[in-house]
Design a protein around this nucleic acid. Sequence first.
RNA 1: UGGGCCAUGGUGUAAUGGUAACACAGCAGAUUUUGGUUCUGUUAUUCAGGGUUCGAGUCCUUGUGGCCCAACCA
Length: 558
Amino acid sequence: MSIEKTTDPAAALHFLEEIVESDLAAGRYKSILTRFPPEPNGYLHIGHATSICLNFGLALKYGGATNLRFDDTNPVTEETEYVDSIISDVCWLGFEPARILYASDYFQQLYDWAKVLIMNGKAYVDFSSAEEIAALKGTPTEAGKDSPYRNTSPEENLALFEKMKAGEFPDGHCVLRAKIDMASPNMIMRDPLLYRIKHAHHHRTGDAWCIYPMYDWAHGQSDSIEHITHSICTLEFAPHRELYDWCIAQLGIFPSKQYEFARRNVSFAVTSKRKLKQLVEDGHVRGWDDPRMPTISGYRRRGYTPASIREFCDRIGVGKREMVADMALLEFCIREDLNKSSLRRFAVLDPLKVVITNYPEGETEWLETENNPEDPGTGKRQLAFGREIFIEQDDFMENPPPKYFRLSPGGLVRLKSAYIIKCEEVIKDAAGKITELHCSYVPESRSGQDTSGLKPQGVIHWLSASNARKAEVRLYDRLFQVEDPASEEDFKSTLNPKSLQIIDHALIEPDLADAKSGEQFQFTRLGYFCVDPDGTAEKPVFNRTVTLKDTWAKEMKK
RNA sequence: UGGGCCAUGGUGUAAUGGUAACACAGCAGAUUUUGGUUCUGUUAUUCAGGGUUCGAGUCCUUGUGGCCCAACCA
């Protein structure tokens, strides 16, 4: 799949596009190369999606390419399972990496470069403990102090470093540090760690290495090796840029450049791997792909389309200020997409039986209705109509408020694509609960050939009792009750207890029972739904992606 | 000895010294056999003080506020 990046010349450029355009105009690069560099230690979430869209989108717009590179320098936390899910998520979003690469591919090169640094007197092996190193680091307002190991000779350091690599020291025994400036106002530059010892199995290199490069020693050089022109990362890496450039300058290699943008958050969601992991492990959700999760796999299962997520990323823009995008915009994007593309079907989530007393017993007629009024090319379908039907409980009220357009005692309502009915009698059980409605229909009000002259305000959906099928429907609401759960002392205390409502007695049109996992529909008047993989032929399961805009519900809240 | 980044309606994003705009959200109306869609209208914005200028969201200056940096994580 490929995405057409249409460029509106009048559209304003964001700051990264400006940088790219000026680089291209100045002839600094013939074409650009970006990269998306996830660490394979968790599932991708909506924040990653914005980064993916940015990196791939930039390359697409300017005729460049994008590598997918796994930043797999920490064997303790990384797993192949995550690599696979990340690749599939990126592809699902509609992007095609030019190459799929791994920082671990460069371990030998990185090691050789570290030795160059050592021989140039720019790195040393430090046997101080982690605590000692931290203590000598200083504070933001106080200069650090030199390590006692800082002035070891290059030759000795080289021998020591080779011993580290050879596995002669246990974990944590020593580290390789760059020799820069313990008094730098930038804490990152106070002799940063380059290598640590971890006798751990790596998901790709196995047991070949027991020393692993730190982010700062791996990232810029990996970019450089691949000739990445624009290395785009989030704001918190801005202080690292000085070190990024320093490493590249020391080695005299291809000068990739780092640019930072503000992480893009979404309201009513958390986007931190740690927090998401907690939700999964504590059982607050059913898994990483739970449709309530802001993970890419969660949105996919929920029924969000790749196009809707890309559109969302485009619309929220890119900047350098901390921001929280409104979830309502994401919902707007998915409704906009699905409104155009999804077939309409009738489903009754909470059925109320209606007997049409003046309709002949045992008779069935077939009524035509459109599959998608937004796209006449999708044709029409036939609905069975008979004496017994089901309507939505919500579409009947015994004592309706003003402006209630639906059915009420003695009132009229239009059954969409069928007849106008009038509520004649409300049947209740001993407890006073409404069990069914007796209605009469107006024979000359048949949809499309209505000569009744009646004009009920309300139009409701319905299903024939003769052929409706059962289904489970899962209704999702926001996972959190507050806009910014991450800012709470305990984000889990703001979980929405009603984020999942399971309806096991819903009714659907018969052909819906054969829909394949992932297929999407608009349930008329209710919202957009997709088929969940949990379903079976006997009991299909539908996930509500998003409701339709509901001005009546809004009115009722007032 | 602190350094870096940032500040425009409710939320985002534009305006690159010359009428503060666009989208979402909100509100009001029209259309509608989905209280959907579509269409129209509308509310609401430059962190504060000082300066430069005919003119400042934009430049200068002083504040204020927010985020990041003292992981052998990325």
